[in-house]
Amino acid sequence: MEIKVLGGCCGNCETVMKMVAEKAADLGKDISLEKVTDMGAILGYGVMSTPGVVIDGKVVHAGGIPKPSQIEAWLKG
């Protein structure tokens, strides 16, 4: 599973990175986690409000910190 966290500057994006990594470890899921800070790339996903989350090329979340239950659902899905 390939997960990308979209976001430029605020601590929120770091928080999301950590949440995803921890949740994946909890579930024993093997993921590749990457932070995307390039504006062209972020907007390329059609996202203007960060942090955003992209899983296997599909935007699942934009604008704000997702809930742990959401992250769990993505990882299981």
């Binding site: 390329g44 059609g46 996202v47």
Partner: peptide
Amino acid sequence: IRMGESALPEGPQGLKARFDYAVD
């Protein structure tokens, strides 16, 4: 920069989801 036309996920639907969203 060209912006992608990605279908963004829907916002919270229903009263419960909206309530949770508001708390967050």
